[in-house]
Every structure is written in C-alpha cells, then in structure tokens.
Design a binder for these strands. Structure first.
Lengths: 337, 337
DNA sequence: ACTGGTTGCGGAAACGTTTCCGAATCGTCG
DNA sequence: CGACGATTCGGAAACGTTTCCGCAACCAGT
C-alpha cells in the first residue's frame, strides 16, 4: 500500500553530491549560490524527497498546527467560527485541529493539559463552563491560548467575548416595542455561563420595559432543537405568552415548531426571537429575527490574537468585545404603534 | 507567558536517579519492577514532565493524527460526517485535523501530496471532482487514504460511496406517486460528480415513471441556499412545475423560499424534495422530505476502514456502499390515489 | 604578494524520544 | 559452590531535520 520508507535529506545529499547542510540551506533559502540551489532541487525531484514535518517540528520547536476546542461542531455558532478561523490560519501556514469536547469539563481540562505535549503551537478554546481547574490550567499554558467566552476579570488570558446579556436585553426590548407584553424565555441549561447571562439579560430587558418578571414564563432545557420544542410545549401547556425569546436559534426553531403544532401563528399570535443569528435563522420559516453575537467576528478576532502571539507578540493579555446586534426578520412584527 | 522550556525525560531521569531508558520503559509499561515505576512516576510529578508528542512521533513514526478533507465544513453532509468520525478517532487516540479545500481541485491535490510530509497517519478525503491528478496522487499515498465519494472502478483505494443516482430516482418516483407530473430539478454545478449523478438519477426516475424529459424544468446553480433560491426564481418565471426536486437540502430550502415568495403553497401547489436529509430538513417549514444518503453511516464506515488500516490491516482496497433512502416529511403529499 | 574580510560549504551537535544491546545482578539448580 | 538463565538497567544509537562552527577558498585592498 504505502511505500515502505520515503527518502530523507541524506538521499538528496548523496544524489546531489553535497552535504545535508547544503540541502537544508538550499531548500530553506539560506544560500546564495544559484547553482547549488539548482542541483539540490534537481536531486529533490529525482529522488522524490519531501521533508518530514515531524522532524522539522522537533528541530524548530514549532508544529505549524493550531487547535480549536469547542463543545460541538454541530452548533452553528461554533461552526461559523471554524469557517472564519480556518482560512486565516491557513494563510499563515497553520493547520487546524478540532477538538469537540461534548461540553465535558473533564475533556476541556484534558485538552488544556495536553498542550504541554506541544503537538500544537496554540489553542483557541470556547469553554462552556469555567471552573477553577480551567483557570489553574490557563495560568501558565504551554502554548498561547485564546479563550472565546466570558472569563473572570482577573484571568490573565487573551480573551474574545460578546455581551450576550446585553444581546438578550435587545431581544426583549425589540419584542416589547413590537407590542409583546407576555414575553417568555426558553433558556439552555441554567448552570452554564451563557445560560446565566442570557437569563440576566432577559430580566434586564423586562425591567427596562417596565414588565413584571414572571417565572412561569421561563423554561430551561438543552441548547438543541428537540429541547426547544419540548420546552415550548411545556410552556404553552401552562400559560399563554405573546412572544418567545429563545436562548439560541436551535431552541427557537424547536419552539416555532411547537407553536405551529399548537395552532398559533408566527408572528401574528406569538412572536419569536432567536439568538446567534446563524444561517438557520435566514433559512427558517418564517425567517427568524435573531440576536447576532458576532460569531464570525469573534472567530476572526480570536484567530488574529492567536496569530499575533505566534508571531512573537508579547505583553499583557488582550481582550476584545463584540457588541451584539439585532437582525430583524419576519418572525417578529415591526415596532407597533 | 508560556514557560520557557518544559522538562524533558532527562530531568526526570536525574530526579529519579535512573537512566532515561528506564524512565521511558516505566512510562510505557515495559518494565516489571514496581519500585522503579513508582520512583519514576514520583519524579515525573515532581518536575512536571509531559512527554513531547513531536519527539515521540519522530521516533515511533506515528503522529496520532488523522486528517479529514472536504469542500466546506459548512455543508451539513460533511458536518454530519465529522461529527461521526471525530469520536471514533478519538476513541482510538487519534486527533482530527480539518482541511476545508473550498472545492478547489488544486487544494485537494496539495492535501494529497502533503501527506508525504507525514504529519498525519491517515486521511479521509471527500473529493468533489476526481481528476487524473487525484488518481495519480492516490496511486501510492504516503499514508492510508479512504475516499468518500465516487471513484473510477480501477482506482485501488479504500472507498465509501452512496448511490446518489439511485437516490435521485427515489425522489422522482416518490413525487410521481404523490401525483406530481411536472417535476422540476434544481441541480448544483453540472461539472461535479454529484451533479452529474443526480441529474442522471433524475432522468432515470422520469423514464421509470413514463414522464418526458423536459429540459426547461431543469436548472443549474451552486449547492448553497442562495443559489437554490435564484434557480427557483428563474424556474418559476419560466414554467409551472408541480414539484421540485433539489440536489441538496440547501438548494431545497432556497427553493422553498422562492416558491412561497411567488405565492405558491407547499406541498399543495408545489411539492419539494431535498437531498442529504440533514438536520435542516427536520427543522425547516414545512419539514422537508429528503433523500438520505447516509452521511453519518458513510462517515462511520470511512473511519472504520481507516482505523483498520492504521491497525495494520493489509490487503486489497475495500469498498462499501450505503444505500439511499427516502425520509418523507410534510413538503410532499402522501402517495395519492 | 600578503593580509583581512567574505563567502560557501561540510562536519557535527542538537531537538526529545524509543529501543537495541550488552553488562551486571540475582536467583536457582545441578 | 559454581555456572547458567532470567531479569533489570544503563549506554548509545537512531528517527530526520536545522544550525552552529570552522575551514577552505576567494576577492579586494594595500
């Protein structure tokens, strides 16, 4: 199947009648003699030589690889980041390694600790929970790390974040402006950082609009479509909202299904707002009004930060924040009179 | 930021008062003396040693990494494969590297040729076009390769495929059975392998149902939502189909938008069938009838095949075929009388 | 023509492991 | 009690590069 063993730099040297140092220099552009370079290149072609990435890595102490770790690549927000990050890394000659941790804290820690093995030059991490063990592991990472998401103030780590609390508030205010008064909230797990922040933002929004906080309008579940559907069913069986704010687009999609199944129309009877503004929002029916948390921007910023470190940037941890914005589509009414 | 240099096996050896060979043996379980192992483990903990993955790779000639190369991770079919493949690889201790080639043939070739650098132990490749250069590069790859997709009969490569031609035919037959007589087809690019096969299957289906082939019912475009919408607009401006078969779910989604915008109802006036049976199909409105090409199965099979090779399996190239199947949802009518 | 500075190249060390091989130790058996 | 096999460990080579160092050769300047 695969050829038994590829030629090494020694074979090239022999074929070209020069030393291995000269071969290396010729290939890495550290020689000025054109005749030398030509001979080496010819020999390379003749013996079919390709340098070993592993040996180069060992010598140069760089792998040319960067890892991206997140909960699940199936989540469109992360997907958007990956699609943004990969081309940027590639432009700089880095390969991308993917770690799906399945929201398992233990897995995330393992990824962080495995960095000491030095199989990558850097990491972009999207933790869904941040524990003390995370922070400890982030204290002195073996390679540069950029975290996408909320982090305690004191953490000295490059960080890209968004204000999802503010985003949730935007959603509520938009619904209020569009005439909704009984605004329900379908959240993900309450013990996650995004879950807490979105809930807080939802309450912020209610306060800002002068609406009562009514816990019977709040449901918790997972961040998936099915969870959204089930949560919406429970909600509708219990009470009668005129709007639903979902903690992400998947939940919103599930909720829209449940709402239609219950015979209510969108947006006439119940308006719906999602969060993350993924491609799902554009293509759903009706097209979903969604709070954009700038996933693509966050991906780009994180990649930029990491590349800067890889290019030797030193100095204190940087932090960038992407402002949320609302993309209004047809699942909500225009601001009513 | 990052600590200047991690301790090596030599530091451990010194701390434990033994030779580096003993350290290596103790850590890799090739020693029987428990006291030795204990001392080494203690020393490891004391100096904070973590083995260098690169050095191990150089010595063992294995990287513990596998690459997956496809057009675009944004495509739900590939996404489903990744989600299937990653856990399987991980179970066997392999890390996953992602190459998005952007449907660029040159890029795909580069990926294949870069395998000689041995930065991965194997590759799963989803080529969208198969050129002679692909075949040449596949002739004697530096590491085991599994191709997902159609391949010429004579190619001696492990291969997982599906019969998308048969799948397209299923779609047409289903539409016919549901009463459609003017069945349009919105395809992707005509010069891709999937494009050709689906077109052929569409025609097969028409023949099987005794319908005329009418080229005015066929549109070409890209494989994205926007392309699907535009193609459907052109189609509807020109003629009046009672069903649309789209070459993938994204196109179908775009087409459904265009159809609704044109004021036609789904499925009453125009039925729609997609292909790939992605999560989009379940969550769309109305839920989309779609031809499943078993993306997850194909991913799993490819991973299995590759792992078998990595575990030393030899022998001729294997081939597996996943049969297409139809998932009927609400964008089509039940078989009519 | 001799010297001083460049330049071009080869030898060898180093990166951090694994593993082969030989030496030393131990226990056991004749 | 001596010898022999088994076991355990240390030394050193090897994986395939890059790069430091030194040597020879060359050019120009006096």
């Amino acid at each position: 199947m695969a050829a038994s063993s590829r030629p090494t730099i020694h074979e090239v040297a022999k074929a070209a009648g020069v030393s291995i140092s000269s071969v290396s220099r010729a290939l890495n552009g550290n020689t000025s003699n054109p005749e030398m370079v030509a001979r080496v290149k010819a020999a390379v072609k003749q013996v079919g030589y390709v340098p070993s990435a592993v040996a180069q890595s060992l010598k140069t102490q760089q792998t040319g690889q960067v890892a991206f770790a997140m909960e699940d690549i199936g989540n469109a927000a992360y997907l958007a980041m990956v699609r943004e990050i990969q081309p940027l890394l590639r432009e700089d000659g880095y390969r991308l390694l993917l770690h799906a941790t399945g929201a398992d804290v233990q897995d995330e820690i393992e990824v962080l600790e495995s960095l000491a093995q030095k199989y990558v030059d850097g990491l972009i991490l999207c933790p869904i929970r941040v524990t003390d063990r995370h922070l400890a592991a982030l204290r002195s990472p073996a390679v540069p790390v950029v975290v996408i998401g909320q982090l305690p103030e004191e953490a000295d780590v490059d960080n890209v974040r968004t204000d999802s609390r503010q985003g949730a508030r935007l959603a509520v205010e938009h619904l209020y402006a569009a005439g909704a008064r009984r605004i329900a909230f379908i959240n993900g797990p309450a013990d996650t950082v995004p879950g807490r922040l979105r809930h807080a933002g939802y309450q912020d929004g209610l306060h800002a609009c002068g609406l009562e906080v009514d816990d019977s309008l709040v449901e918790f579940g997972g961040f998936q479509v099915s969870a959204g559907r089930e949560a919406a069913q429970r909600l509708l069986a219990r009470t009668q909202p005129d709007a639903v704010f979902a903690a992400n687009d998947l939940i919103a999609l599930g909720a829209m299904h449940a709402i239609r199944s219950a015979g209510r129309s969108i947006p006439e009877e119940i308006q719906v707002v999602g969060m993350d503004d993924t491609t799902l929002a554009e293509t759903s029916f009706p097209p979903l009004t969604s709070v954009s948390l700038g996933s693509r921007d966050r991906g780009r910023l994180a990649a930029d930060m990491l590349l800067a470190r890889l290019h030797g940037e030193t100095g204190p941890a940087r932090r960038a924040t992407v402002a949320p914005s609302l993309t209004v589509r047809e699942s909500t009414r225009e601001a009513a009179a």
